[in-house]
Design a protein around this nucleic acid. Structure first.
Length: 336
DNA sequence: AACGGTCTCAACCGCGGATGG
DNA sequence: CCCATCCGCGGTTGAGACCGT
């Protein structure tokens, strides 16, 4: 039994909005707002439309200060950075781009940016990132593997948003206890040379990028920010944005970890956590055992977190293979 | 000019979460 | 605590525009 429809589809108009309908909706909202209820708005405004359709039309098209047209290179960089950090959370990404809607950004990513990414990555020795991921024994990885046996403090947190740009919405504020854990996410290489060229002296915190809000000493995001994204490395061989397998896994684990936090699990992000996670994901295990590169991973600590109620594990239980997780969280980097 | 393939993007769909009775 | 309702989100669709032959 499916969910009841939000309105009677036979009694509402669908498809493109006419100028008259736009005018009615704009006039009504400018006078009365949405009255806290989109469902009843169409009736009050004299529109034969579904409330959800009105909401969408207003948010994506009619609302003031909507920016249409081409995206700037700076906007591209911000989208790349945020997508790398948080994936397809379009509404959060949109919050960093004044005037842009989540729908716009989603469309832009799907039609333009992803292709840009593919064409750039494919210019590196036949899609370096794809081959790195899909063929674990690939020799494309030039950067030494991160020594994960050493826990290094890491200030990167993909869920931190620039407090200067977006004071209203911060995921971190909703995830109790998460702040402390960011120091336990060592999926960056702390020894990798940092490029702080975008440090903004006008910013009170010189470690925060004025454009993206990401802390400057995060390898991955800063390499998006500080270079022409996906351009050739100086040595002409190593795409700087390349993710290592353990970085990918760590990103997935972080997502998993946050999911657990939101469900009230408060265990540490540790060796035990890592082992539980990997053991719960057969394909990851296979990927790792196939390479041997991560066999000495040691997350430090001794605590452990049950993985049995995470959304990731639930996905497995529902026979959504963890490849779908890979697809969601990782493959956007590797489309070829 | 005609046609077919591709691209774009506004709009729709359905789900999960939040909220309030 | 349960249930109904609404909101907001991300994924998907499809009509029209565009492009190449």
């Amino acid at each position: 039994m499916g969910r009841a429809p939000c309105c009677d589809k036979t009694k509402v108009k669908r498809g493109p909005w006419s100028p008259e309908e736009d005018s009615k909706l704009r006039d009504y909202i400018e006078k009365y707002g949405n009255g806290g209820n989109w469902i009843s708005l169409p009736l009050k405004a004299g529109l034969r439309r579904c409330g959800k359709s009105c909401r969408l039309r207003w948010l994506n098209y009619l609302r003031p200060n909507i920016k249409h047209g081409d995206f700037s290179e700076e906007e591209d960089r911000i989208i790349f950075s945020l997508f790398a950090a948080i994936g397809s959370r379009w509404s959060i990404i949109a919050a960093h781009l004044p005037g842009r809607t989540d729908n716009d950004i989603k469309n832009y990513w799907n039609t333009k940016l992803r292709k840009k990414l593919v064409s750039s990555s494919s210019s590196h020795s036949s899609s370096a990132m794809a081959s790195t991921f899909l063929n674990p024994n690939s020799q494309v990885v030039k950067r030494p593997l991160t020594p994960l046996t050493t826990i290094q403090p890491c200030s990167y947190n993909p869920y931190v948003e620039n407090p200067n740009q977006n004071p209203t919405k911060s995921l971190i504020s909703n995830i109790n206890g998460f702040e402390a854990d960011q120091q336990l996410f060592p999926f960056i290489n702390p020894n990798y040379p940092q490029d702080l060229s975008l440090s903004d002296s006008s910013n009170n915190n010189n470690n925060i990028s004025s454009t993206t809000g990401f802390l400057q000493n995060h390898n991955m995001c800063d390499q998006y920010n500080n270079h022409n994204s996906f351009s050739s490395h100086v040595d002409g061989k190593t795409p700087e944005i390349m993710l290592k397998q353990e970085e990918i896994i760590m990103m997935m684990m972080i997502d998993h970890h946050i999911d657990q936090r939101t469900k009230g699990y408060i265990g540490d992000f540790t060796q035990g956590y890592y082992n539980n996670y990997i053991n719960g994901h057969g394909d990851l295990k296979q990927m790792i055992s196939g390479t041997g590169t991560n066999s000495n991973i040691n997350m430090g600590g001794s605590g452990s977190v049950s993985a049995s109620s995470s959304s990731s594990i639930s996905n497995l239980a529902e026979n959504k293979s963890s490849s779908s997780l890979l697809q969601h969280k990782c493959l956007p980097y590797f489309y070829s």
